[in-house]
Every structure is written in C-alpha cells, then in structure tokens.
C-alpha cells in the first residue's frame, strides 16, 4: 500500500509540473504580448511598458516560468490587474463559497443516488425501477439552471423559507450562509444524482450476475443482504470514477448556478477575469483548478485501492 501511495504521489507531482508548463505556455507565449492583450488596442506604448514591468514580463522565458512557479509555491500569485488585490486573497474568498457549495452538492447527490440506485437494482425490471429510471432520465435531460429557477420560485418566492440569492458571508454565521448555499447545491446535485444513480444501478446489476453473488445466496443470504453486503462494494469503482469527475466539475463548473443565485464563487471569478482580460487571475485560478482536479484524482485512486484489495499491489 505504501508503494502504491508513493507511485501515485510521484504521478501527482509530475502531472502538476506538466500542467503548469502547459498553462504557462498557453497564456504567456501563444497570444503574443499579454500586456498589450490585456490593455486592448487603444493603449499607449508607455502604459503597456509599465504593465509589462508589473507583470514581470521582462525576463527570459525560463526565468519567468520559474519565478511564477516559485511565487505559487510560496502562496504569492501576484496582484489582480482589475481588482488590485492579491490573487491569493481573491481566490481564498471565492473558495469559501465554491468549496462548501461543491461539497454540499456532492454529499446531496450521493445521498440521493445511493438509495435510488440500490432500490432500482433490487427491483430491476419492475414498475418502481422503471418509474425511478424515468425520473433520472428527466433529471439528466433538464438543465440545472431551470431546476434552480423552479426552486427559487417555490422555496424563496412562494414559501419564503430560503433566500433567493446572494451570499451573506461566513462571518454572518453558519446558518444564514448554509441557507444561502442550500438551494444552489440542490440545483447542482439533482442532475449529478440522476447520473450517479444510473451508473450505480447498472454497475449493481452487472455485479448481481457474478458467480460470487450466487455463492452468497447459496450460503443463505437474502437477496437484499447479498446486494448490500456483496454487490455494493464491487459496484463502487465506477461510482467513484463518476464522483471524482463530478467534484472537479462542481468546483469550477457551477458558473451558471452561481449567476442564477448571485453567488461570488470561483466560476464567476474566472468568467469575469476572462472578460476583463485579467490574465494574472486567469492563470492562477486555472492552475489552482488543475491542482484541485489532480488532487481529486489522487484521492479517487486511493479510494479505489481502499475499496478493491486487488489494486493495492499494482503501481
């Protein structure tokens, strides 16, 4: 298991280095002069030169790459050109919204998908399986912002249980902040839960055909006990794969939902940074997201090994 961890860690570091090279190349090298690009067509040469100085675009390519990398390693991501504040602070503020939102959505989607998938697999082919699978089809087909608007109409406008949007900040207390995140996380979680439930169902059905389920039944296990004690763990690997992908998506891909609910999250930050040509922010946020995705992949790999003893030995 230790060797497995060491190999995975090595892979993690290598992919981070490659990713940083790609991000650096795409943003600094390919579009020509970033300073001129950021300032637009009408900027005077003096302003461009001044920006080049602030951006640190004056050294050689390798030197710039190394100083950028070194800065990130020490937590210095530079100063945002549009917001005039350190990118690190900006990202930390947004993370305080996006990370809890993603985690909450993920927890909700798992909490919905697990019983639904188990139920559908246990009653495969019967009416309730067909009904539940029809609902999940709907959950995948309907865009999440439409769900979001429905939720706002029902719970914020009509029932007035929850706020319709905005984020009071964690300083305002856990409960108001949590209430602000609840509707958006439900809107994010529903389509994910639908996908997850379908994946779990088909993985379970495949597992239920296996010989060891027959062995378990011959031991005297009931159908449902064989499902929960033998099939579930074997069906988890594809489910973990989807979960890992969903988390990465939820972290940065929630931009539409963030807009519907006026949430100051990462998705909106990166969208605004791109429209305002704030390359420093774009570069840093992309790098942080890459780091997050690689970290999640690493965690998924470890989860595989925890679930499946056969994977612990291989590298």
């Amino acid at each position: 298991m230790l060797r497995f961890l060491a190999r995975r860690l090595l892979a993690l570091v290598l992919s981070l280095i490659v990713a940083s090279l790609v991000v650096f190349a795409v943003i600094e090298v390919i579009p020509g002069d970033p300073a001129a690009f950021m300032l637009g067509l009408n900027a005077s040469p003096e302003t461009v030169e001044a920006l080049r100085q602030t951006l640190g675009l004056t050294g050689s390519l390798p030197a710039r790459y190394l100083s950028w990398l070194g800065g990130m390693l020490t937590g210095d991501f530079g100063i945002s050109y549009t917001y005039k504040v350190p990118v690190a602070d900006l990202v930390a503020d947004r993370m305080a919204v996006s990370l809890p939102l993603a985690l909450l959505a993920l927890a909700l989607s798992t909490a919905i998908a697990l019983p639904v998938g188990l139920h559908a697999a246990a009653r495969r082919g019967r009416a309730s399986d067909t009904a539940v699978m029809g609902l999940t089809q709907l959950g995948i087909a309907v865009p999440n912002f439409w769900f979001a608007m429905l939720l706002v109409l029902v719970f914020a406008v009509n029932l007035r249980w929850l706020p319709a949007g905005g984020f009071p900040g964690w300083d305002a207390g856990i409960v108001p902040a949590f209430k602000a995140l609840l509707l958006p996380s439900i809107a994010l979680a529903l389509p994910q839960a639908a996908i997850l439930a379908r994946v779990l169902r088909s993985a379970l059905i495949e597992t239920l055909e296996q010989d060891y389920i027959r062995t378990a039944r011959a031991k005297g296990l009931t159908r449902s006990r064989a499902l929960t004690h033998h099939a579930l763990r074997n069906a988890l690997v594809p489910v973990l794969t989807i979960l890992g992908m969903q988390f990465s998506f939820l972290l940065a891909g929630a931009i539409i939902i963030e807009n519907v609910f006026y949430l100051p999250g990462l998705g909106r930050l990166i969208f605004q940074a791109i429209t305002q040509r704030d390359l420093i922010v774009v570069e840093s946020v992309v790098m942080i997201l890459v780091f997050a995705v690689i970290l999640v992949t690493f965690a998924t790999d470890i989860a595989y090994a925890l679930v499946d003893p056969r994977l612990r030995r291989r590298g």
Binding site: D211, R214, T215, A216, A218, G220, L221, H230
Partner: peptide, 24 residues
C-alpha cells in the same frame, strides 16, 4: 429457504476463480 441454504444444504460451483467475492 434462506434458513436451509448454507445451513442444511451447502453448495459449491464450477468456477472457483469467480465464486468468491474479490473484495472480502
């Protein structure tokens, strides 16, 4: 039947490579 299977009647099958749960 669940009380009889495994307790009064035991059964083994053809394919030992797949007859056991790989995760347990």
């Amino acid at each position: 039947l669940c009380r009889i299977r495994g307790a009064r009647i035991g059964m083994i099958f053809q394919e030992p490579m797949t007859a056991l749960n790989p995760m347990k």
